[in-house]
Design a binder for these strands. Sequence first.
DNA 1: GTTATGCTACGTACCGATCGGTTACATCGT
DNA 2: ACGATGTAACCGATCGGTACGTAGCATAAC
Lengths: 210, 210
Amino acid sequence: MYALKSQPSRRRASTRPRARDRIRETATQLFYRQGIRAVGVDEIVRRAHATKPSLYRSFPSKDELAAAYLRDWDNAFWLRFEAAAAAAGGDPRAHIGLFLRGLEQRIRTPGYRGCALTNAAIEYPQPRHPARRVAVAHKRKLRRRLMQMAKAMGARQPQLLGDGLALLLEGAFASSQLFSAGGPALAVAKVAEQLIESALRPGTASRHRR
Amino acid sequence: MYALKSQPSRRRASTRPRARDRIRETATQLFYRQGIRAVGVDEIVRRAHATKPSLYRSFPSKDELAAAYLRDWDNAFWLRFEAAAAAAGGDPRAHIGLFLRGLEQRIRTPGYRGCALTNAAIEYPQPRHPARRVAVAHKRKLRRRLMQMAKAMGARQPQLLGDGLALLLEGAFASSQLFSAGGPALAVAKVAEQLIESALRPGTASRHRR
DNA sequence: GTTATGCTACGTACCGATCGGTTACATCGT
DNA sequence: ACGATGTAACCGATCGGTACGTAGCATAAC
C-alpha cells in the first residue's frame, strides 16, 4: 500500500501553510466574492481543508475573522495607495491620477467587486460590529488623506475637493459592481482629473450657489 | 397557549390593512434598516402581526419579497426624480441640482442608509438573483437618464459628464452610510455643480491627459 | 328562515437544513 | 514531550418553507 510513509507524499506538512493562514486566506476569497453574511464557517473550513476547532482556536468568532479580513484589505489598500504616491514623486495630483488609473485596471479584472470595507459596512449597519468598526476607521483615514492631498494641490477649498474625490472613489467602488463591463467606474480617473482642474482654476469658485 | 396581545389585532378587519400589505410594509422597514440577509422571515411576520403562510401566499419566496421591496424603492426614486425635473421646469442643470439638494436633506435624516438598490446589489452578487436584477435594471436606466441630461445641458462629452454624475450619486449613497454625520455626501450637490460647470465650459477639455 | 356550499383570509404546528460555536479526545510532526 | 491540528459528535437557535386546519362571510338551495 503506502510503503512510502517517509516519502514526501505528505510533504505538505513542511511547506503547507498553517491552518490559521489557510483559513484566513480562504475566508478572504469567499468573503470578498460572496459577501460575509453569505458565507458560513463550515464552508470556510471545508474549502480551507481545515476544521472548525482550528478556526475558533485562531479567531474568537466569525465576526472577528471578518474584521481580520478587513484589516488585511486595509493594509493592502494603503500599500497600493502609497506605492502610487511614491511613483508620483510626491506630486499629489499625479498621485491620485496614478492611483485611479490603477483602480480602473483592477475594476477591469474579472471578479472585481469593489471595496471590501465599503461592502462590509453595508452588510453590517450596526455601529458596534467589529467589521464595521474597521471599515469606518479606514474611510475616515482615507477622507483625511484626500483632504490633505487637495490642500497640497493648492485647492481653494481643499475640504470640498477632498470630499469630491472621496465621492468619486466610493462611486467607482459601487458602480464597478452594478455594471458588468464598461460602466461609469471606468471614467473615474478622467472625471477626477476634470474636477481637480476645475478646483484649482482660480476662476469661478463655488461662487454661484443657486 | 400563549395569552398574547392578539386582542386588539383581530377585530380591526375593516380598517386594518391586509396581511400582505402589512408584511410588505414591515419588510420594507426591516430590509432597509438592517439589510435583507440580516432579516429573517420570522421576524418580518412577527412584527407585521402576521404569519409565515400569509407571507408565502402573497410572495413566492423571501427573495421575491425582497425584489418587490426594491421595485417599490425604484418607483419612489423616480417619483422624486421626476418631481425635481418638474420643479426645475425642464432645465436639466437645475434638475440635478434640485434633486441632489433634496438628497442631501434625506441623507441628513436619522436612519438614512443610502440607496436600497445599491445595498441589495452588494448583498447579492449572484447575477440571477431577483433582488439584484431589479437593482441592475434601475442603475442602467439611471445612467442612461443622466447621460441624456448631460447631453441636454450641452456638455461636450455627455457620456463623461453623465458617468461623473452617476459616480457622485453612488458615492453619496455609500458615503452616507460610512460617515455618521457631516460626511462627504453632504457636498455632493456642490461638487456636482462644479463638475457640470467645468464640463460645460468651452475651455480646457480633458485635454492635458499626459 | 335555515342550511349547505364555496371562497377568501388567516393561523397552528411542524419540516429538514443550516447557522455560529463548543466539547473531549485522537493523531501528527518535531 | 509538546504544540498544532484533525475527528466526531453535539448544542440551541434560527433559517426558509409548507401541510393542514379553521374562522368569517357571501351566495344559493331548500
